[in-house]
Nucleic acid binder design. Structure first.
Lengths: 195, 195, 195, 195
DNA sequence: GATGAATGAGTCTTCATTCAT
DNA sequence: AATGAATGAAGACTCATTCAT
């Protein structure tokens, strides 16, 4: 087995186990058993149990990050709402396809590694800022009603996280992504009231 | 020190530490040091590390549960929206005042105790159901527009959790509860669009 | 409750528990619960867990010791065999009536207290010597055939211990003492062969 | 050091210490110190302190069991008394060579492990039954005088145990096995009386 | 005398990490 | 590169004993 394959195989086992049992309840013994390698071999590829967890999480938040494109409002041929929906769909698809990692970050509890806590916090802050800026822009353009955009940004992130947690964290996650995303956007834009 | 005081003091130390460092990274040594008691004393009051954690969580979800009153729609003198807002305010105040416990349940990672996992799941399901029923009722009464109420219920829970997490989890949580709750309700009812 | 009664009550609980669960598996908590006293009270009457065990054992081996009378062979009016049988019957009755203590000494494992080990050893040695002297006397008097009396003394002690263990250690010990003692004496004197 | 050697070395240390100090007074710390290994190494080879004790005892009673051959009375060329003596000699040699284990089982106090208690009880019951059947057969064949064979079987087991305990449990156990076994058989067959 | 809360040394057990082969 | 035996620090938990009330 070539180096990168072996590394992937270990990452894959760890990902599965961390999602199932959590970081602390997953032991190196569990991982090497699942990956079918010797104890020492694990430490050839990763410095520590923390290190493999970090790598998993960091790679994942980076992929999510890369699947979010900045919304272009200067080009009149591209509807910003469609760009928004495309972003959400791309992220949703990513979460859907990596349900183990989705579960891991959505139930991530601090206390494993301070650096990692920081990185995850920064990631969420970045998303909040992104949403926040979009809302503020919308308010300027008078598409969106005046509001405390920071609070609303939190709400929208919360919606996404809770829905993702509920839908993509099960063995057979829902596949009606499009419908669900529509519902979510609709709710965010129009609210519940029957007007 | 009388028995109940001592127990409270231990609970208090544990609550603080679990919130700061997480369940697994908090040792009995940490707790007894903080509570300024001997090792054996801890075990007079609690059977195990799991037991004290369970007690903390169970008591908290019970308080939250008890602060939510069923909304009465048959009495025309009581505006259901005000009843809703009162519920949210009561819960918000509770979370605000018990910020350690709020942090603990909002970053709760499964795997500590299967029974507890179940109880927390049940609690969230109960809340989802409450919201879901309210939405369905609203739809019937044509106050609320037709929608996939299950998804929307998740959204609303997500909003509450994320806002709570962001605001009540810091050392000096925001005290503009009323404003925040208004913003949240407004968002849920009207959405973002400027109509 | 007067002092001696309370002490007896504690001794009684300890005796029962040591017999049931063994010295190490019986905790002070078990004893005070059974005796219905507070923790501190125990230490008014006994210095330590070892101390109560020692007292129990020492008193018991002393009673056994006192129930064995030296056999008088100079008085022709008293058949030595009857004196022997009377001795055995007295001991047997004692064991029968104190089945808890019988179980404790018969399953006594060293390692609790070096002094006590010594005392029990000395007690058994004394009995062995008693039997040994009796046999030697019998040989001199030509009642008993020549033999290695030390080995035979061990055999006889072994017979008594094993029979006692089997019979007096159960919930309802056998009450056919007389028959059993006859059988034992017969075996020792005549052996198994059909002559 | 190869795995089986290391395991033997640990078993050997444990055997010595359990014999010297008893199960409860022997700590894992004692064993690993004597075996000159690290704490964790012990747990590579044995699941627990109970487990190593069980293994020691079970293996030993199995060896004893296997050294006892069923006595063949249908073959006229083989004297049953010689077969009996051979059995006793084989067991005696085994006990003589494993004096630590001999001490352990002869002072075994119940309460360490219920399964093990059962196995040891069963083992002794099996021996009692063996002796009992032999006596009954002897009675039928009119070699042995009529008697309460159950009591006598206990006596014979008691003789063997006490003699074994006294002789093989010391640092330098007696090596006059043949003589001792003869004495024991003689006593059992002929008793003490000078006829 | 009686109480029972408090103590802390001692015990078993786990597990991430190392390193000689 | 791969192995897996060995390590030992760190953790949870127990329990005989003490002592202020």
């Amino acid at each position: 087995m070539i180096k990168t394959e072996r590394k992937q195989s270990i990452l894959s086992s760890a990902e599965k186990l961390f999602a199932e049992k959590g970081f602390f309840s997953t032991s190196i013994a569990d991982i090497i058993q699942d990956a079918n390698i010797a104890r020492g071999t694990f430490y050839i590829y990763f410095d520590s149990k923390n290190a493999i967890f970090d790598e998993l999480i960091e790679d994942f938040i980076q992929s999510i990050d890369q699947s979010i494109y900045r919304i272009n409002i200067s080009d009149p041929s591209r509807d910003p709402f469609i760009q928004l929906k495309d972003n959400i769909l791309r992220v949703a698809n990513l979460l859907y396809n990596r349900s183990h990692l989705t579960k891991i970050i959505l139930t991530y509890a601090t206390g494993i590694n301070h650096d990692l806590d920081q990185k995850i916090n920064d990631f969420y802050k970045k998303i909040i800022n992104l949403i926040n800026s979009a809302i503020k822009l919308g308010i300027q353009m008078e598409i969106i009603r005046p509001c405390q955009s920071e609070i609303i940004a939190l709400c929208i992130l919360g919606c996404i996280k809770e829905v993702a947690h509920s839908l993509f964290t099960h063995e057979n996650p829902s596949d009606k992504l499009n419908e669900i995303v529509d519902e979510l956007i609709n709710f965010s834009l129009r609210g519940l009231l029957n007007t």
